[in-house]
């Protein structure tokens, strides 16, 4: 096994995982202009829904995954209807929205912990994740291939949705100027509700796939969110394509950064990259 090839593969895998979280985060940020901390908990909701239906109740895999994605999406949409929409109507600042999302994150994380305990759980190894495939002189597991394919498909799907459909144009219009979007007849509150559904469902799918890869914990959301946020800022916050760019860059920098040093430095390297971008290129690689 060639270490350089393996680092490239690991960088792509990590980048795909960060992209999975950053895609939904950026979609929601683009439409609402606030950092939705609660986004991380929807990944945990997706993972724990599959854990409940597939592992505890013995339901089939595909319906369990669909339930996980759907429930995460509905939870995201409800969070908008019950918390963020009332705050938007009261013209709450982005700081107030951020604090509210942090509160929501903490509350939902506590509910998950009460229901399923704080223990680390594994999802059944349906993907036989130990099975590896050789790529040049490196190896990759089956679940990682699934994650990469999912990210590529989601990115293409979001690209087509935003650029080819009328719904996508409405989302972009809101992202540009929500007041003007309203006067041309777009029901921005409804569209933002759907954006929350789509973004949170993507996070839920991320939580499920990561659950099959490394397992789940109620606190898994914060770690994923932080990496997703770094990927968003590095790529260009609010920019869907920036999610992919930032996710991959973060994945590569993290993995190549620990080539010669301990893996414990990964987080320090990730946040170092964030600080460098905030100081020298706050708009990210691709900008808005």
């Amino acid at each position: 096994m060639d270490i350089l090839t393996q680092l490239v593969i690991n960088g792509i895998i990590a980048g795909a995982i960060y992209t999975l979280i950053a895609l939904g985060f950026n979609l929601i940020y683009g439409a609402t202009k606030f950092f939705n901390i609660a986004h991380g908990v929807f990944a945990a909701i997706g993972g724990y829904t599959v854990f409940f239906f597939f592992k505890l109740s013995g339901a089939a895999l595909v319906p369990s995954i669909l339930a996980g994605v759907l429930l995460a999406g509905i939870a995201g949409m409800l969070s908008d209807k019950l918390v963020f929409l009332p705050l938007r109507r009261k013209r709450g600042s982005s700081v107030i929205m951020l604090v509210a999302s942090l509160g929501l994150f903490t509350a939902l994380q506590a509910v998950i912990a009460i229901m399923f305990s704080n223990r680390f759980q594994t999802l059944t190894d349906i993907f036989n994740i130990q099975k590896t495939y050789q790529i040049f002189s490196g190896v990759i597991t089956r679940i990682h291939i699934v994650i990469i394919i999912t990210v590529v498909s989601l990115t293409i799907g979001l690209f087509l949705m935003l650029n080819r459909t009328k719904f996508g144009k409405a989302v972009k219009a809101i992202s540009d100027d929500d007041e003007v979007a309203r006067i041309i007849g777009i029901d921005t509150d409804r569209v933002i509700g759907y954006v929350f559904f789509i973004g949170s469902a993507i996070a839920g799918l991320g939580g499920i796939l990561i659950g099959f890869d490394t397992g789940i914990m109620p606190t898994m959301g914060m770690g994923l969110l932080l990496k997703g946020v770094i990927a968003s800022i590095v790529g260009g916050v609010g920019n869907i394509y920036g999610s992919v760019c930032g996710g991959l860059l973060l994945g590569f920098v993290e993995n190549f950064g620990v080539w010669k040093i301990s893996g414990e430095w990964k987080d320090a390297i990730a946040f170092g990259l964030l600080i460098i971008f905030l100081l020298f290129r706050p708009q990210g690689v691709l900008g808005k």
Binding site: K169, A173, D176, Y194
Partner: peptide, 23 residues
Amino acid sequence: FEQMSVMDNILVVLTERNLWCAL
């Protein structure tokens, strides 16, 4: 709508508001 093309700035006005049609 700065992110959009000149054409899309007009087309977005002509959008149907039914969700499924829009999607």
